[in-house]
């Protein structure tokens, strides 16, 4: 599904190397978690994969089902099935949540050469998906993320994911700013989307989220590299001992 090889990335503005050779392979239906201390390059990885401006790839490659992701515009990556759940979802004043969802969905369908979804079908779909995430009609009408609580914003990201049905989902610190109940709701939303054809890359600071979303593989990232890869037990190890030991091992 997602193949990242020796990815080197520089931050354009500061001419600073952030990723220094990331290699990662996620198969169809797998859930991988990336953990790591602040500044290790986790969020940069998610932005580079989704095509945000401001980063230069100096070496390496990233492909989605064999197609070169790095040459695609962000909207093409989305239409190809890549989805990033933002750490800080963006507010868009004056644009209704439903309008946003429908515009996005139809834009993707158009790029893929599929017909647009009818108003009736869309409404049915959005109501059904929203229900599981406890998103009410009011939240669907409100402007995108404006005045949403932290939990509402994250639930809204998962709603978008459920509507757009991507095959490769990247969750960038989706657990940050969530209380226990909200985290449970979000995790249930994510778990409901797990399937043989859909893969996840879950970026998080804490093992807590991984109690709810069980990963197949856990990677530890530090200083722009993946320094250790293991099973779910690796997350527990980090939770108990912190990153210091692991970092010392590598350095």
């Amino acid at each position: 599904m997602l193949e990242i090889k020796n990815l080197h990335v520089k931050l354009e503005e500061e001419d600073k190397q952030i990723l220094k050779g990331v290699t990662l392979s996620i198969g169809a239906g797998e859930v991988h978690a990336i953990m790591g201390p602040n500044g290790s390059g986790k969020s940069t990885l998610s932005y580079v994969l989704s095509g945000r401006d401001g980063y230069t790839v100096t070496d390496g490659s990233a492909t989605l089902d064999g197609a070169d992701l790095l040459v695609m515009e962000p909207e093409v990556r989305a239409a190809q099935g890549l989805f990033l759940a933002f750490q800080y979802p963006v507010e868009i004043p004056g644009v209704g949540n439903m309008t946003f969802l429908r515009t996005a969905l139809n834009a993707q369908r158009k790029t893929r050469g599929e017909p647009e979804i009818s108003a009736g079908d869309f409404l049915k779909l959005v109501r059904e998906k929203a229900k599981g995430l406890k998103i009410d009609a009011d939240m669907l009408k409100r402007p995108v993320n404006v005045g949403f609580s932290g939990g509402e914003k994250k639930r809204n990201e998962i709603l978008q994911m459920a509507m757009l049905e991507p095959k490769m989902c990247i969750l960038d610190e989706t657990d940050s700013g969530l209380d226990v109940d909200a985290m449970k709701l979000v995790s249930e939303g994510v778990n409901a989307l797990r399937s043989a054809g859909r893969s996840f890359l879950v970026i998080t600071h804490y093992q807590r989220l991984l109690d709810h979303i069980k990963p197949d593989v856990v990677h530890i990232m530090a200083a722009g590299r993946i320094i250790k890869t293991g099973g779910p037990e690796l997350a527990l190890e980090v939770e108990n001992n912190g990153y210091a030991d692991l970092l010392a091992e590598v350095l």
């Binding site: 515009e73 962000p74 989305a78 507010e91």
Partner: peptide, 12 residues
């Protein structure tokens, strides 16, 4: 805002 929209599939 533009990147957020584009990451959801909309053209610029």
């Amino acid at each position: 805002q533009l990147f957020y929209c584009r990451s959801r599939g909309m053209s610029e």
